[in-house]
C-alpha cells in the first residue's frame, strides 16, 4: 500500500511538470506587468490588445483557413490513397506503397521543409499561401491514410460480397456499405490532419516566403524579440481551443470504441 503512494507522488510530479508551463503562460496573461516575473494585478488588457491587433487576427484567420482547407483536401486524397493501397493485393507492392506513404510521417520537419522549398523553387512556384497550403496538404495525407486503412482492413470482405449479392452496384456498395463503415477512420484522419496543420511550425517556416504568415511563425518571430504578454493571452485562448478540439475528438473516440465494444460483443455471440 505504501509503495502505491510513492507511485502516485511520482505521477503527480510528472503531471505537474507537464502542465506548469502551460498554466504559467495563462496565469501571466492576466498580469498587469510586461514580463512573466511578477504578477502585478489582474487585468484583461492583454486580451483587449490581442483583439485589437488587426494583424494577429488576420493571421489567426489565415491559420484556421489553411488548417481547414488542407485537412479537407488531405482527407479526400488520403481516403483515395487508402482505397488504392487496400486494393493492391501483391504484398510487395502493398509494402512499397506503405513505405512511400510513411516517408513524410517519419521525416524530420526540417527535411520536409527544406525539400519542399527546393521543390517549389525548382518549379518556380511563388511562395506564400499556395505553397503553405500545398505543403500542409502534403504532410497531412499519410496520417489520413494510416487512419482509414485499418478500418478498411478490418472490414470483412463478405460485407462487400453481401451488398453485391443483394443487388448493389459498385458506387452503391461504396456509398452504402464501405463509407459508413470507415467513417470513424475518416473523421479521425480529418481531425489529425487539422491538428497537424495547426501545430506545424518548421515546414511552414521554410515554405512561407515573406508575404504570408501562420500563427506559429508569428509567435516564433515575436518570441525571438522577447516576452510580450499579448502572446500569453493568445496561448490561453489557444489552450481553450485545444481543449474544445480534444473534447470533440474524445467524444468521437468514445463513439468509435463503443462501436468496437458492440462489435466485440457481436463476435462473442458469434463464437458462442
Amino acid at each position: 500500500m505504501k509503495r502505491f503512494r510513492w507511485q502516485n507522488i511520482y505521477l503527480a510530479l510528472v503531471f505537474l511538470v507537464l502542465y506548469i508551463p502551460i498554466f504559467y503562460l495563462i496565469f501571466y496573461s492576466f498580469s498587469q506587468g510586461h514580463n512573466m516575473n511578477h504578477f502585478s494585478g489582474f487585468t484583461w488588457a492583454h486580451y483587449q490588445e490581442l483583439f485589437q491587433d488587426q494583424r494577429m487576427i488576420e493571421i489567426v484567420l489565415d491559420t484556421l483557413l489553411v488548417a481547414l482547407l488542407s485537412s479537407l483536401l488531405a482527407t479526400i486524397i488520403g481516403l483515395l490513397g487508402a482505397l488504392v493501397i487496400h486494393r493492391v493485393k501483391k504484398p510487395m507492392w502493398k509494402n512499397t506503397l506503405l513505405s512511400l506513404n510513411n516517408i513524410l510521417m517519419v521525416s524530420p520537419d526540417v527535411i520536409i521543409g527544406a525539400s519542399f522549398l527546393i521543390f517549389f523553387t525548382f518549379l518556380g512556384f511563388k511562395l506564400g499561401f499556395g505553397s503553405v497550403l500545398l505543403s500542409h496538404i502534403a504532410f497531412s495525407i499519410p496520417i489520413v491514410v494510416l487512419m482509414v486503412l485499418p478500418k478498411l482492413n478490418e472490414m470483412n470482405t463478405s460485407l462487400v460480397d453481401a451488398a453485391r449479392d443483394l443487388g448493389a452496384t459498385q458506387p452503391q456498395v461504396f456509398s452504402r456499405v464501405v463509407l459508413p463503415y470507415i467513417a470513424p477512420g475518416i473523421f479521425a484522419g480529418f481531425f489529425m490532419a487539422f491538428t497537424y496543420s495547426l501545430d506545424d511550425f518548421a515546414v511552414t517556416f521554410f515554405v512561407t516566403g515573406n508575404g504570408f504568415e501562420t500563427l506559429a511563425v508569428e509567435i516564433y518571430a515575436r518570441a525571438r524579440q522577447g516576452i510580450s504578454l499579448e502572446i500569453n493571452a493568445l496561448s490561453a485562448l489557444m489552450f481553450l481551443f485545444s481543449l474544445v478540439l480534444v473534447a470533440g475528438y474524445y467524444v468521437l473516440n468514445q463513439y468509435n470504441s463503443s462501436k468496437k465494444g458492440r462489435k466485440r460483443r457481436m463476435e462473442a455471440n458469434h463464437n458462442r
Binding site: 508551463p21 502551460i22 504559467y24 503562460l25 514580463n35 512573466m36 501545430d199 500563427l215 496561448s235
Partner: peptide
Amino acid sequence: TWINLLLKAYAFIGI
C-alpha cells in the same frame, strides 16, 4: 502535445 510547440518554448523563456 496539442498546444503549439512554440508556445511551450515561449513559456520556458519566461520560466
